[in-house]
Computed example of a mutant assay.
Amino acid sequence: MTIRVMLVDDQELLRTGFRMVLQSQPDIEITAEAGDGAAALEVLAGAGGRAVDVVLMDIRMPRLDGVQATRRICLDDGGLPRPGAPKVLILTTFDLDEYAFTALKAGASGFLLKDVPPPELVSAIRAVHAGDAVVAPSTTRRMINRFAEVLPVTQPPTGPTALAPLTDREREVFLLVAQGRSNGEIAAGLTLSEATVKTHVGRILAKLGLRDRVQAVVLAYEAGLLKAGGR
């Protein structure tokens, strides 16, 4: 299956570099490009959203930045995941960009550094297309630990009520996912099979309306269930 990719970056030189890397892959096709978030939305609207599977999105751009564009691509007016929307993979300089956390909250499936090695870029796009998070949960947590304290709180912590739809066992699994534990580590800690843990994780994401494990970590921090720099 061909993965249709859209490149969104205000630097044409970077888009050219990414295009050269990705077009060399037999299962990836560059179907659209845009120089800012507003242009990206216009292109997607013109294509009905069907011509793009994965959007490689810069954050800092004129007119409409990558965070706002990601929110409008991934979420509906009620803040819920938009069915059939392209997956968004955020590009960030990390050390300078404090908006990656906000982009994940806006519906992005993960993030990459702009100097990502070509093989990692290709693997990340394939992972996102398959419905997985781009970065390992532990890496995601380290990133959130760094940014959580400098970002404004847009909503009051919801605490345990955020997990109201979950069973007691699912709450246990959710908190371990949020702490960056892999399925294997969770299985060992709770004396379960990895298949059972995987089933729990799938049900948790469905009940809470989350796209992937990355958003589970974000929810845990936003709800005050985990604190920056600690559990």
Rank of each mutant, 00 (worst) to 15 (best):
Val52Trp: 03
Val67Tyr: 02
Gly17Val: 03
Pro117Asn: 02
Thr154Asn: 15
Ile125Asn: 02
Gln11Leu: 14
Ala32Arg: 01
Ala223Gln: 08
Gly229Asn: 11
Val54Lys: 01
Asp36Met: 06
Pro152Ile: 04
Ala38Val: 01
Gly230Cys: 02
Glu33Cys: 03
Pro62Phe: 07
Val153Glu: 15
Pro83Thr: 05
Met20Asp: 12
Gly46Asn: 05
Val177Ser: 08
Thr167Trp: 02
Val8Tyr: 02
Val52Leu: 07
Phe94Asn: 04
Gln179Met: 14
Leu75Glu: 07
Gln215His: 13
Leu104Met: 14
Glu12Cys: 06
Gly202Arg: 14
Pro26Lys: 13
Ala216Val: 05
Phe174Glu: 12
Asp53Phe: 04
Ala34Ser: 10
Val43His: 11
Ala100Leu: 04
Ser24Asn: 12
Val52Met: 06
Gly46Phe: 01
Asp77Arg: 15
Leu44Phe: 13
Pro119Val: 07
Gly189Phe: 03
Ala178Lys: 09
Thr93Ile: 09
Glu222Ile: 02
Ala103His: 07
Val153Gln: 15
Ile186Asn: 00
Leu166Met: 11
Val88Trp: 04
Arg203Trp: 00
Glu29Ala: 13
Arg231Pro: 12
Glu33Ser: 10
Gly230Asn: 04
Gly84Tyr: 02
Leu91Met: 11
Pro156Trp: 08
Phe18Trp: 14
Gly79Asp: 10
Leu208His: 04
Arg126Met: 09
Ser182Ala: 12
Val88Gln: 05
Ile204Lys: 00
Leu14Trp: 00
Ile30Glu: 03
Asp212Met: 06
Glu170Phe: 05
Gly49Tyr: 01
Leu205His: 14
Ala45Gly: 04
Val177Asp: 11
Cys74Arg: 14
Ile73Gly: 00
Asp9Ala: 08
Thr161Phe: 05
Ala85Lys: 03
Glu194Gln: 15
Gly189Met: 06
Asn183Arg: 10
Ala85Phe: 02
Leu190Trp: 00
Ala206Leu: 11
Arg72Lys: 14
Leu175Ile: 11
Arg211Tyr: 12
Gly189Tyr: 03
Arg82Gln: 15
Ala195Glu: 11
Gly78Met: 08
